[in-house]
Design a protein around this nucleic acid. Structure first.
Lengths: 257, 257
DNA sequence: AGAAACGTTGACGCTACGGCAAGGTCAAGC
DNA sequence: GCTTGACCTTGCCGTAGCGTCAACGTTTCT
């Protein structure tokens, strides 16, 4: 004679009572008649309706979409929504595949250093920078990591090309010495006597392509790539900035000759 | 000299300012120093940290997981989490593939009737039931749809086997006649004189396997499959229930003979 | 009769922010 | 000097689909 109560219905269809009430609240499932004590009394048709909703949710439809389908109540709408859903699922598959591919390359390189995840080439460059103690080297490191995380692959390749001459065996020791001399100017005055010689020595070690970039930026500030150079100078002391400005002028003279 | 403000940082890394503040709120990104006017002032290292967070989120890590990684700050934790993440993504791929497969079959059968999505076999059975006007047929229809939506494939196959004899060409007309006679008992008394003959005629049309199931349920109520039969009787009038009970007794007698 | 297992409504929690409100600050143009 | 517009600040509400109390009434079992 009587029907089911909410717990039986939920168990039958395999959902929680909370879910059933939620569907009532959203208007997906009509509220059944109430018994004298206020309990909801469900019939077979309610189980059918609930099971239908369940199947649609399991396909990945949102409850709003399901309500539209139920309201519209024609196969036409359903087919539209399902086709759109399939396209959406295809996109999701693609996105997941991409992420898994990136994960796979990350996991393949066992080079999971805590501070960053970078390409092998970039990792090699980073290895050649002074490990600690040099503030300027640290800035360079941060810059490189940032570019490798943000820049397009083309940008990264370009930066790597710019850096590569500096990582040749003969350069390394001299590079470290330059870093030390730059660090020594952290609190120095702009007119410190060490600035001039350091600028000259620095100019002698800058690769040609990088020199061109620095000169271009000196003459037309705000051009492409200016942000990055600006951010570098933001981190340096006035004396250190002066070293680079002076070195750039030297490079410009050399180029004219 | 100075660093960036929040808008520059956000634009540099490619997120919204809201996102940056959100990360501050969650403790993912340390709050930088404030200028005299209250503005946050960011340095290069903040951009590096933010970019790192971004990369991890794009891989699919939750912000909580990222905070754990940043706190623990060792490649070990990172590797663990990434491997777990990969496994999770694999599961998601599998789930999506399953859903797309089901969608494909649904879309392939152009049989998207508004009231349900069932297997072709089940659709054939449903087609043979009286379309409208018969309450009992409607109950049967609901029952079948429910089973096809909820039951395991094995259950569905069994139900289909039970129903198949009833859908043979010769049976259809008689079945419809039986439905009509059952419907006529909707408001009848249990002792209505039509009950006896209808029970006899009904018994003559029940397939053997279904008869066995009905008999078993009569003798040991609450056994497997009892829910479904109980739900059927829930929807019927006392006289209709009596017809089935009586028919089951007749079948039991026949079996003993 | 008391406890366990149901039922009722209502409200907060979760993710990763988006959007809006209601203001304060700053550079540029009139 | 004043307006305009583009920034910045904090804070709160909304999202999807329920899970999980809370606080309380009902039924059922022992």
């Amino acid at each position: 004679m009587g029907g089911m109560r909410i717990g039986e219905l939920a168990a039958l269809v395999g959902v929680s009572t909370r879910t059933v009430r939620h569907y009532h609240h959203l208007g997906l499932l009509p509220e059944p008649v109430r018994l004298a004590n206020g309990y909801r009394e469900y019939r077979l048709r309610d189980a059918v309706a609930l099971a239908r909703i369940r199947r649609l949710t399991e396909l990945g439809l949102s409850l709003d979409e399901i309500r539209d389908i139920l309201a519209d109540d024609q196969g036409r709408e359903l087919r539209e929504v399902l086709e759109e859903l399939d396209a959406d699922l295809a996109r999701q598959q693609e996105a997941i595949a991409v992420r898994r591919a990136r994960l796979a390359t990350l996991l393949a390189e066992a080079d999971l250093r805590p501070d960053s995840m970078v390409s092998p080439d970039m990792a090699a460059v980073l290895r050649d920078l002074p490990k600690a103690g040099s503030r300027i080297a640290e800035i360079d490191r941060e810059m490189l990591v940032l570019v490798s995380n943000l820049g397009e692959p083309a940008d990264q390749a370009q930066i790597l090309d710019l850096m590569r001459p500096l990582t040749e065996p003969g350069m390394l020791a001299q590079g470290h010495a330059l870093y030390e001399r730059l660090d020594a100017l952290a609190d120095a005055d702009v007119h410190d006597p060490l600035v001039g010689p350091l600028a000259a020595d620095l100019a002698a070690h800058i690769p040609d392509e990088m020199a061109a970039l620095m000169i271009a930026n000196l003459n037309t500030p705000g051009a492409a790539g200016a942000n990055w150079l600006e951010m570098l100078t933001d981190e340096m002391s006035p004396a250190q900035i002066e070293v680079f400005r002076s070195a750039t002028l030297i490079l410009q003279e050399q180029e004219r000759a």
